[in-house]
Amino acid sequence: MSNKKFNKVLLLVTAILLGIIFITPLLWMVYTSLLPDEEVLHGILSIKNLFSIKLSFQNYRDVFNRVPFFNTIGLTFLFTGTIATIGLFVNSACAYAFARLPIPGGTILFTLITALIIIPFETLAIPLFLMLGVKCNLMNNFAGLFLPYCAKAFNIFFLRQYFLLLPKDLEEAARIEDASWYRIYFSIALPLAKPAIITCVILDFITHWSEYLWPLIISNKSTFETAQIGLGHFYTLPPIQWGDIMAYSVMATIPMLLIFTLFQRHIVLTNATEGLKG
């Protein structure tokens, strides 16, 4: 019995230790972002005189003074928002069509779409650069930034699976009442698939907020950078000030954190059967 208890305590202690190890780097980021410049150089030893150091938001102010941060974060929001919004309709419409409606050559087409999932974006990066950046002259252009991501084979596949699992009753009832397929897709299927769609939107948001390779390729102006690329440049921008760099990092993280926390609750609350209950 005591052995069992011991085991439990051991597990708890290990778990908490792991948790601390996991969270420390992020805490360090926040801590450093609040430190005055001269204290950053003391590293961890600065903790010793933690109570005499004045933590401040000066580093955050410095970031705004040194680079056009509003610009950067605005572009990032626009980038992720556009992809998520366009993707929401484009992908779900396609998925719905493949789940419910007759399409000439549908099976072959869908197999093809599924096959596209395996092609990594890295393979497409160079031709996309030559096509969009060089031929269409979309360097440093918003269209060039989001176009490659408007449709996503994986999301189509994922949403179709979800649509297939939904009961057909509501749609059939609407069909009898002479509603068009577009109406049914928009006002019945789409709301029913909310959990799956929100999942797609969150995944898209996280992926594209952190997107690195393509924004790096398609921009060569410091005024046209997403937060990730901006950070990458900011952290080698002389003079190197770690406090400022960490402040930038914190600010580049907060939007993602917020949106995730907000939407996550949504996922838990919505339920696939809600539509039928009403």
């Binding site: 950046g133 060089v134 360097m139 790096l216 060569n220 410091s222 990458g232 440049h233 080698t236 921008l237």
Partner: peptide, 15 residues
């Protein structure tokens, strides 16, 4: 910026 300077030049040349 010095980091990535060369690739910026190349991209500008192509554009």
């Amino acid at each position: 910026q010095e980091q990535g300077y060369g690739s910026r030049v190349i991209a500008a040349a192509l554009a």
